[in-house]
Design a protein around this nucleic acid. Structure first.
Length: 597
RNA sequence: GGUUGUAUAGCUCAAUUGGAUAGAGCAUCUGACUACGAAUCAGAAGGUUUAAGGUUCGACUCCUUAUACGACCA
């Protein structure tokens, strides 16, 4: 694509010189793909040239187009609609472009001049409850953004900061001590994260009852919340934890171990991975050191009660608490430590935090605070802020039992894929393991595509019925398009058809062919744009576009039934390239492709 | 109260960053399988882009004000 666009731009400059004796300013020399309803493949907008050239937009378009048609071999024809010059490209140019595509291997890096060493932090779960739908959007986004950045040639580290300490963990532990009766994941027949989550819910339930009880005795709600025995116990446990109490630590290790086993199973199931785990329990002390450093430098200050604050009013933010009066840390304390650890470990020039948009303010504070400390990595911090996932019934609330559990959801989409596959009845000869793998590929593919196709920064609605849809703008639609190309390649191999490598002998192209080539050539653009904006949605849209174009090509021209052997092997090659592009593009979203479905 | 985000077809989302007649999918209607795989393709219908002003050759996009919903900070 780069080369063809360059050819056209050079030709346009020559045309402008020849007809108007002037250059087209670089800012105006932007070619955009021609809209569907008009003839042509590339469009130059001529409105901006009217002043410089002293002519009307249509006159300019006519003059440039006429010159190009006569003098530029790449341009086969043109048409002018108002201020738009649409250029039709000669088949030979499309073939040359296809030759370039064939020469560049699948997944070749797309250099963008963006950051080279990147840390993407995502997932970052709490160890007191299992993953839910909201985490899925986070995990899919983080994984995908990391893959997209890798595709630009960057060295990317996927990091997971586990929130493994704090009062919420103690709540689960207290409830387990009281009601657990020594249960283990094995004895309970539950994944470890679900087991821990069960006790967290139990804590909340009994805690609410205690509050009610106290209120009945005439205590105000506010006081009751603080004085409920369960809460006092939990706080006592937190202090013991900070003091390193042996018994508490043993229980903490034991329960967290269960939870990690559960998380790892979920991660494996949804196909995300990490290069590095950080634990809040291992970073909050370093964070406290940074607070001390800030005090020593005089950029933080202490209030009379001993709490430590940073004043960010000059940055348009407020005063922010960094350390409580009793010396215990708050959320941001450990963030200061973690940022530094990550920098020590990986020396990033970009550090991406995949965190929901409710933390926008928090992330601004973190960055501003690091700047105050004069940390060189403060500028490298980027918050990939994404919107919440809503359910048709409203917001997810664990307290009201309206959470969608991640493991459950995956099971459901697999079931839907299974039902649809059995109905189609096209999978004869596949083993049970292969079938299970297929249902998983399709189900998770549908789910990932559904969550990733929406612009990350937008709040989105999760419709359970739509998420398991397999037709239309969905993951399986694109996977199906791939499966067809795969079948073509298998049959071609069996019948001894060899994909063309020397394209110069092909003469005329069908519209569906040149269009597909143009779409395939857009891969680099899509990756560059997605990397710049940290938006997998752009990749999802591109994948959909490729699949559509590939389907049209499949429908409109014969591939294996073509009688001309040269054309046949050209089309086999084009189909193969389309399949390959779909595979690498979906790969950037963490979606796999089936050879059959 | 302060800061901030969002508002596009019945529903869920796009719109190449200021360009053409605002596009897809779902749902509705019509057509195409003795055709390389119909999980597909072709088509119809569906819009005062929340409202009112402004900027200019040109606005869903930028500016002002208002309204609605959300998030965060006291």
């Amino acid at each position: 694509m780069q080369q063809l666009e360059q050819t056209l731009k050079t030709a346009l400059q020559a045309a402008a010189q020849a007809t108007f004796g002037q250059e087209i300013p670089a800012a105006s020399l932007v070619l955009q793909p021609t809209r569907k309803d008009f003839a042509g493949s590339f469009t130059l907008v001529t409105f901006p040239l009217t002043k410089a050239f002293g002519k009307g937009p249509e006159q300019i378009g006519q003059a440039l187009g006429e010159w190009l048609k006569a003098n530029a071999p790449a341009v086969r024809g043109y048409n002018v609609v108002k201020g738009f010059l649409n250029l039709e490209i000669a088949d030979a140019e499309w073939l040359k472009l296809f030759g370039e595509l064939l020469a560049s291997p699948a997944g070749a890096p797309v250099p963008t001049g963006g950051p080279q060493r990147v840390v993407v932090e995502y997932s970052s779960p709490n160890t007191n409850k299992p993953l839910h739908l909201g985490h899925l959007r986070n995990n899919f986004l983080g994984y995908s953004v990391a893959e997209i950045l890798k595709a630009t040639g960057a060295t990317v580290t996927k990091a997971n900061l586990v929130n493994d300490r704090g009062i919420h963990i103690c709540k689960s532990m207290i409830a387990y001590q009281r009601f657990g009766e020594g249960a283990t994941p094995e004895s309970a027949g539950l994944k470890g994260d679900h087991l821990a989550g069960k006790y967290y819910v139990l804590f909340e339930k009994h805690y609410r009852e205690e509050i009610k009880q106290l209120e009945a005795e005439g205590v105000t709600n506010e006081v009751a919340k603080k004085q409920a025995p369960l809460m006092l116990e939990a706080q006592e446990m937190l202090q013991k934890w900070e003091a390193g109490d042996e018994e508490v630590m043993a229980l903490w290790h034991r329960m967290n171990g269960w939870v990690y086993d559960g998380f790892n199973a979920t991660y494996a199931n949804i196909g995300v991975d990490f290069d590095k785990f950080y634990y809040e329990s291992g970073t909050y002390l370093l964070g406290k050191e940074r607070v001390e450093e800030g005090l020593a430098k005089g950029v933080f200050f202490k209030k009379e009660n001993g709490s430590v604050w940073v004043d960010l009013q000059a940055e348009g933010l407020d005063e922010k608490l960094l350390l409580r009066a009793d010396g215990t840390s708050v959320y941001i304390t450990q963030d200061l430590g973690t940022a530094e650890l990550k920098y020590q470990d990986f020396g990033y020039d970009s550090s991406i935090y995949v965190i929901a948009d409710e933390q926008n303010y928090h992330m601004q504070v973190l960055q501003a605070t690091l700047k105050k400390l004069g940390k060189p990595y403060a500028e490298a911090i980027h918050h990939l802020s994404y919107g919440m996932v809503d359910l048709p019934s409203g917001k997810m609330k664990s307290r009201e039992g309206t959470v969608v559990d991640a493991d459950e959801l995956v099971k459901e989409v697999e079931e839907a894929a299974k039902a649809a596959t059995l109905e189609k009845g096209k999978t004869e000869g596949l083993s049970d393991e292969e079938l299970a793998q297929l249902y998983h590929t399709l189900g998770v593919g549908a789910l990932k595509y559904y969550l990733l196709k929406v612009d990350p920064k937008k709040r989105m609605l999760f419709n359970p019925e739509e998420s398991v849809q397999l037709t239309g703008d969905t993951g399986p639609f694109i996977q199906y398009s791939y499966a067809r190309t795969s079948k073509i390649q298998r049959t071609a191999k069996e019948t001894g058809v060899v994909a063309l490598t020397e394209i110069s002998e092909i003469s005329a192209l069908e519209p569906a062919e040149s269009e597909l080539i143009q779409v395939l050539a857009g891969y680099a653009n899509a990756v560059a744009e997605a990397a710049k904006t940290l938006s997998p949605a752009i990749i999802a849209q591109y994948a959909y576009e490729v699949a559509k174009s590939n389907n049209r090509f499949y429908k409109e021209v014969s591939i294996l039934k073509e009688s001309d052997p040269l054309k046949k092997s050209f089309r086999v090659a084009l189909s193969a390239k389309a399949g390959e592009t779909i595979k690498t593009t979906l790969g950037l979203l963490g979606i796999e492709v089936p050879e059959r479905m």
